[in-house]
Design a protein around this nucleic acid. Structure first.
Lengths: 168, 168
DNA sequence: GTCCCTATACTCGGATAGCAAGTGTCCGAGTATAGGCGG
DNA sequence: CCGCCTATACTCGGACACTTGCTATCCGAGTATAGGGAC
């Protein structure tokens, strides 16, 4: 069981979008990919899913790109993960208890077998933990813990790249 | 992110082994597969992993098969899952924060970036939930909630299949 | 000088290959029993 | 009749195809700007 790379890239990208939200500019997928040094076109695939889920907004055209669709405080890590992975639990009960030589009438089984119950409980705990942190929390921590030099370099790179992209 | 089918099959198989532990007989993979109506050879693959992890014991030969390696109270659901999936977290941080135009000397970054911290926290919560339930808990719940008819049919089938398998 | 129009450069979006992992199956290695043979 | 030996039937264990989903890439659709031309 492995989460796709796109999850990590998306979380970093959304966090970056949150940090530049004040600038009122849209960051194109190419810049997001370059900033994180990841494949542009594949990252774009994930960004499209985030846009379809209403987490970020896309704008086409010359000064197009992506921006947050709502404040970072209202975007949880779970929102991002579920936009990419879906909301189905990782464990899927195929009801094998109802098959084989011990099977009886389907209606006589309890709704959920004990094994599925445990797995779903664990899945719920996982999601609850992801829902407890917002993108805003991430940015606060980044601003607090990231190396000052890295912050300056990143800000400088962004400012240079975004010159002549002032929103009319 | 999807858990393999083998996880479900293994949990059911281990639970069944726990319920017949008193009989002092070994259940072969073929019987376990038939009981759950799943592919025998592929289930065997999972059972081998469980045996390698020390959760169940295998015996070859005419009256061979699998049995629990220790009491069901000492086998958690997490033990079974990790025997199959490994103990690596589902999220793997590739340290993309250290790449791209904002990168600085590797030593200056905090040990764990905020995003990885959240994901690993969620992973820990998932594992903690799985570790809180033992196979013995599962069997208790099965004995309590399973349809009595199914229990009887299963017991009868087992008794017939296991005739002439009395452990010397 | 001002307005409008067109060409352009840049963007997102979906469709198209390559690869790893999950899924399913097969055959060989190993062992306890059952039957036959010899004493 | 009793003990030993061999053949057998059954088991686990690892090696071999197939399918699904993740990874990576390409090309077409759409839009705001910039420049040039007409008034």
């Amino acid at each position: 069981m492995r989460l796709p790379e796109g999850v990590e890239w998306s979380l970093h990208s959304v966090s970056l979008l949150a940090m530049v939200a004040d600038l009122e500019v849209a960051l194109p997928a190419s810049k997001l990919a370059e900033f994180h040094d990841v494949p542009r076109d594949y990252l774009a695939k994930s960004l499209q899913q985030l846009a379809a889920a209403g987490i970020i907004e896309s704008a086409r055209g010359r000064i197009g790109g992506y921006r947050l669709a709502r404040p970072a405080e209202m975007i949880t890590v779970l929102d991002v993960v579920e936009a990419l992975e879906g909301s189905d639990p990782s464990f899927r009960c195929t009801e094998i208890r109802q098959r084989g030589p011990s099977s009886v009438a389907p209606g006589s089984y309890p709704k959920l077998c004990g094994i599925a119950a445990v797995m779903l409980r664990a899945d719920a705990a996982w999601r609850a933990e992801l829902a407890a942190t917002t993108i805003a929390d991430i940015t606060v921590q980044v601003n607090r813990q990231a190396p000052p030099d890295a912050m300056k370099k990143g800000a400088a790179w962004l400012q240079q790249e975004l010159e002549s992209r002032t929103r009319s």
